[in-house]
Design a protein around this nucleic acid. Sequence first.
DNA 1: TTTAAGCAATGGTCCGATAAAATGCAACGT
DNA 2: ACGTTGCATTTTATCGGACCATTGCTTAAA
Lengths: 247, 247
Amino acid sequence: MTDRTTSSIAPIVVPKASDILASQLRQMIVQGRLGAGTFLPTERSLVAESGLSRTSVRDALRILESEGLISTKVGRSGGSMVTLPGRDSVARSVELFVRTHGIRLESLLECRVAVEPTLARLAARNRTDAALAEMTALHERFIASVDDVKSYKAINLDWHLAIARASGNEPLIALMEAISMPISDAMDYQHVTTPELRAIAVKAHTVILQAIAARDEDAAFNRMERHVAGYRDIATPRNGTKPARQG
Amino acid sequence: MTDRTTSSIAPIVVPKASDILASQLRQMIVQGRLGAGTFLPTERSLVAESGLSRTSVRDALRILESEGLISTKVGRSGGSMVTLPGRDSVARSVELFVRTHGIRLESLLECRVAVEPTLARLAARNRTDAALAEMTALHERFIASVDDVKSYKAINLDWHLAIARASGNEPLIALMEAISMPISDAMDYQHVTTPELRAIAVKAHTVILQAIAARDEDAAFNRMERHVAGYRDIATPRNGTKPARQG
DNA sequence: TTTAAGCAATGGTCCGATAAAATGCAACGT
DNA sequence: ACGTTGCATTTTATCGGACCATTGCTTAAA
């Protein structure tokens, strides 16, 4: 190695053309300069404006599409319409994370215990009459389905999500929607839905719903906490603590 | 409108070729048949195997890349390597959601109040000595920076995230990392970092850290709850409840 | 042995063309 | 007047080929 003068040039990263275009469009969307429902220019227009090839333009659009920021349709008056990413987008991302990392059921249930009591409290605070009616209807179907495990589980899921949605807290709703499906899937491998536990769950739901109906925030919080903590302790019992009785 | 026989044909969706390929590859990854670190076939190999054009193959790879499932490098011995999506991937998704929907600071702080006490409890339970040392070091820098608002905020953020990481609960860590940055950004528009409040925060952090060091789960939970609930009440005071004193 | 030049493999980018889908419009028949 | 059908138009989807840029390996030269 001969001695050379060492220049102080930092490593230069060459971003991809499609990434640059995607970043610019993304920024315009999050800043609100491209509101939901408005259409991006056509691919060929973007080619003309950006000076890039159609390949790069399309790569950028694919990125935005998989981020849930646009939705592309073909045909006349088609194109790429701005569509704000919904909670399902967050849920997909979390689900990928959970599944690829093999997150244990224990962690997911701990997560739920952290979140759902607050959701119940906020639901008691913010619920509308329509939301209450929906929860009540689900609860009645829940009671009726106590003998059919399959629909029992589905309705149970829906009821918890209905409470979450009634809370009005979008980030927490998204988290709850994100972890509900993995929890439900993982629960299939456990046998935590005995007839006795199902009866207990029905009672727990009843008192929680009463608290939410009465707008009793503390009661909703506490009863929901006992409910989900009970599930956690049954599914993943910890050392030294007996599974608490649910209800 | 003349009467016709109504056929029971459901709407037919024509999936895109790239979506199909992306789904297949995604499934192979989440099922573990393509472990992290392994390489996908080269683009040209995928073209040969799938019978699709290189455009479609590349579209599929772009989708997987933006999902954080692969990372593509150019050059000889380059290609698309399987990389499991990290918490940053979830954080990006949540951040997009929060920013595009204009989620209010109130909701984010409520979210934090729901999550951080549990994180403190789990940190008290699961912390390693190394994690405690990191938190303590950050705390000392926190105390020293009480007069420099900029570094104060940065260190504050890091300290909270350090506690989250010490909890060992990956989903909750991801959520915390996801909402921390938006909260910090939104806080800039509020004036909630007066010198007095900073001094109070230092005291709060001190007692929380003591509880975590002593592995006192309940104390960690309660003190963290008072701390973050105090922030919430100061930043977004609700009707009828005075902002609680922090500490 | 060391260095530099050349080669090979791979993704990045570009171009042009055709296929497929969706919409609007006009012609047609009733 | 009405509804239906077919055609034209616009747009994305897909294809095929070519060349460029980057990277790592190999080989030849000093």
